[in-house]
Amino acid sequence: MNLSFESRSSNEAFARCAVAAFLTQLDPTIGELNDIKTAVSEAVTNCVVHAYKDTIGKVYINVKIEENSLIIIRVRDTGCGIENIKKAMEPLFTTAPSDERAGLGFAVMESFTDRLKVSSKVGRGTTVTFQKRLSCRVGNG
């Protein structure tokens, strides 16, 4: 499933709800769905707040359903990029404290999914990929 939209804050709710709606076919638990919505919300908010700070750009979401209810979600922007990814991923690190950012986005994505990968190039953009295996109450396939 592919989705692209403008980096307006009003699209944050749309993005996480669209991903959740797509995944209902797998019959996830409310908790699993909430974890995914939270991770998507963090990634999309980072595009709105950081990647396209003071401008509007495109946010791209790709959701893949693999075997055994493994879902892989990619959130991509072509914004400012991250200079030091390791530093950015440290809990409580933020470059926007005045904006009431807590510096917890990556920590939340890490905690609410099974695996998180961040790649970025300054001036080119950032791609955040996370995956989560659903318990899958209906038999596989």
């Binding site: 939270t38 986005g105 939340v108």
Partner: peptide, 13 residues
């Protein structure tokens, strides 16, 4: 019903 890290920022602020 739902909260991401923005809720933490709201409390801290």
């Amino acid at each position: 019903k739902f909260m991401d890290s923005s809720g933490i920022g709201l409390i801290m602020g």
